[in-house]
Nucleic acid binder design. Structure first.
Lengths: 201, 201
DNA sequence: CCTACCGATCGGTAGG
DNA sequence: CCTACCGATCGGTAGG
């Protein structure tokens, strides 16, 4: 039961996720990542069949991180509206809590790969669709519990919520707007307000 | 008054903008761009002092394209609400109308450079701030004309509108959602609705 | 605007 | 997991 080294493969993925959050998917190079970990290029390469496989593995690591940092705490909250509110609290700006230096690698990857083809893009599309399905499920549950209007367009709700996430990302990481958190909270409150069961049209 | 060649420098910027919309800022290489135009690497390089200067010039070209394809038609509409509606019609998905093969290079650049430093990032920050100032001005004019609530938080309106643009971009270019246009229109109508002078709270 | 070239780095392989 | 190496490509330069 030796503790050191703590699994080289996992160390590569962890450090690689951090690098990906700063440099993007295409910005990852085997040489740079190997140097940061302190091993040889070919040594690191041996863990993966190709650079593409490394990128796919890093996307998997990102998915695991989101699960741990965002989705798990969300599920611990009471079902319905409380889970939606917890989700937004944990989702927006999650990379800081995950200990990453950069921004959301999924969002960055989406804009990086939106005009390309290949396995990495397809993997990322699958991740995003799966993520939105989770959001849809949480929202639908809030409707079932009467926390949101029974006639709410759940897909539209998720579509607009995703836009708030992206706008928050741009504000906080690119424009460095100190009011990013308040703006996001205000927008989310407005979205909840016009989705609420108290439908005052 | 010779017509051919139609200004090599402009040809480089035009073709480079197209390449940037597909490959992103970092994806641009002098060699690839030179080959697409049919000139030598060093011949193209001579037009710019460095790759960074080329990137800066391409951002300027993107700004010019947005001005021509989005802002100019917007200004031709009646002031206030009609201009805001025209803006969204022309802004969302503008790269197609601009004849580009890829998505919005500004949006892509924001997510690409959000964790980096340097002149290119600073230029892009300036462009985005200037763009949002234009949106703010158009929105404030709609308030002045009584088309929107006098107590509207104009900055918040622009912040949320920017989120709709990003969400639309992801839907149409990455997820290939056929309903992207409808979702964006629905969200924009809702945003206008709760910003309208007919404040039915 | 070109050819020819520079050192650095890329992903990947051979062989151990 | 390493050293040593491959061909290709990178941004950039010399010289014309």
């Amino acid at each position: 039961m030796n503790v050191l080294p703590p699994d080289r493969h996992h160390q590569i993925l962890r450090r690689g996720l951090d690098l990906m959050s700063v440099s993007g998917l295409a910005g990852i190079t085997i040489g740079v990542l190997a140097e940061q970990i302190g091993m040889s290029k070919s040594g690191l390469f041996a863990h993966f069949g190709s650079k593409e496989d490394l990128q796919l593995a890093l996307l998997g690591e990102a998915e695991r991180a989101v699960m741990e940092v965002v989705l798990t705490p969300t599920m611990l909250a009471p079902e319905g509206l409380p889970q939606l509110q917890t989700l937004v609290e944990q989702w927006f700006g999650w990379t800081v809590r995950a200990g990453l230096q950069g921004g959301c690698p999924v969002a960055a990857g989406i804009f990086e790969l939106d005009d390309q083809t290949g396995a990495v893009r397809e993997r990322l599309v699958g991740m995003e669709q799966s993520w939105r399905a989770s959001l849809t499920s949480l929202t639908a549950r809030a409707v079932e519990l009467g926390h949101l209007r029974p006639n709410l367009d759940v897909e539209q709700f998720v579509w607009e919520l995703s836009g708030l996430y992206l706008s928050h990302h741009v504000s906080v990481r690119f424009l460095c707007d100190a009011q990013a958190g308040e703006r996001a909270q205000l927008a989310f409150s407005a979205l909840l307000g016009r989705s609420g069961s108290a439908d005052q049209a």
